[in-house]
Simulated assay, not measured.
Amino acid sequence: MRHYTAPTSPADAVTGTVGHATPGAAFVGLHHRTGRPLFLPNAWDHASAAALAARGFAAVGTTSLGVAAAAGLPDGVAATRDQTLQLALTLGSGPFLLSVDAEGGFSDDPGEVAEFAKELWAVGAVGINLEDGLGPVERHAAKIAAVKSAVPGLFVNARTDTHWLGDGQGTLRRLDAYQQVGADGVFVPGLTDPARISDLVRHLDVPLNTLHSPDGPTLPELAALGVRRVSLGSLLYRRALGAALDAVDGIVGGRAPSGGTTPSYGEVQALARGDG
């Protein structure tokens, strides 16, 4: 089994070094550092993941929106199973720990979700994000249990959309069900109220993951509340797309592109070679 040593960088305060460990154990360890949540940026292709790793991030997630949009497919409707697995195959042997956003597992059948999780593990992923989409609690719990039975070492981050798609009602009931069947962490995107975050942290037995919001608590504030993982979701993909449009508008308007870093051709080539 390959071993993993996390990189050190100026971002060490949020990425961290976990030492010499198996990849699965290293990823778990990044969720259990008091006051230092795992800051997880999300990539959508090899270059974006390699660039983030080159900045020193110990772990990188994927974004289902970025994967779907890049393929011309809708997000959240189980249309990107093959594309998600192909990206995991591309990234799974990289110099970082990989967590894969798998929507709801691309099936309502727990056994099929478990088979997909086994494929992700086989290509090097150490984590999977499974969202309930406000579907039946029992069905999502069955998916989590099936994945943990099939691939015990895979970190299952169980997402509930009670705040993303609803008004927050039923959050505790869902999270209780998911942690009871073996979820390693739980994810509540859309939750930004500090008091509610603090209440959840006190209630849970597993790490809480929140989604960064420009209007929500800062990373230090989330750390103080006890959040153990902060994800960026599709933010970087959407910012990259926006930067491209801004550059085009500037050039058409007779202005030089501004407002962001532009890697050189050679730097991008270096990422493709793995020496970025």
Rank of each mutant, 00 (worst) to 15 (best):
G226H: 13
T160W: 02
G105D: 11
G250D: 12
A68C: 11
V156H: 07
L65I: 01
R174W: 05
T17P: 13
A240L: 13
H163V: 00
L65S: 01
P189E: 00
V248M: 03
A122W: 11
T160V: 04
I251E: 08
V206N: 06
S264M: 07
T162P: 02
R159K: 07
F187S: 01
E138K: 08
P7Y: 12
G92P: 01
T218S: 14
R36I: 12
A21Y: 08
G253A: 09
N42S: 05
T84N: 09
A183N: 08
T162N: 11
A51H: 02
T5D: 13
A272P: 01
D246L: 09
D193T: 11
P214Q: 07
A25E: 08
T5A: 15
L245Y: 03
L130C: 08
D167N: 05
L85W: 06
A102H: 02
V126L: 07
L200Y: 01
L65C: 01
A224S: 11
R55I: 03
A224R: 13
R255F: 03
L241V: 12
S107A: 11
R196D: 13
V201D: 04
A158L: 04
R196M: 14
Q180F: 12
D275C: 15
Q86H: 05
P220T: 15
E115G: 10
G24N: 10
P207V: 06
D199F: 03
A145N: 06
G259A: 10
E131G: 14
V147P: 10
G259E: 06
P95L: 02
A122R: 10
I197C: 02
N42D: 06
L236I: 09
A240E: 12
L65D: 00
F106I: 03
G168H: 03
H203I: 11
R36H: 12
R81M: 04
D205H: 14
A224T: 05
L222E: 13
L175T: 03
T5Q: 14
W44A: 00
L241T: 08
T34E: 12
T80P: 06
T262F: 07
V137E: 07
Q179P: 15
A183H: 09
S9T: 12
D167M: 06
A150R: 12
V147F: 15
P136V: 05
L225C: 14
A142V: 09
A141C: 07
V181C: 08
Q180N: 11
R36N: 08
L30P: 11
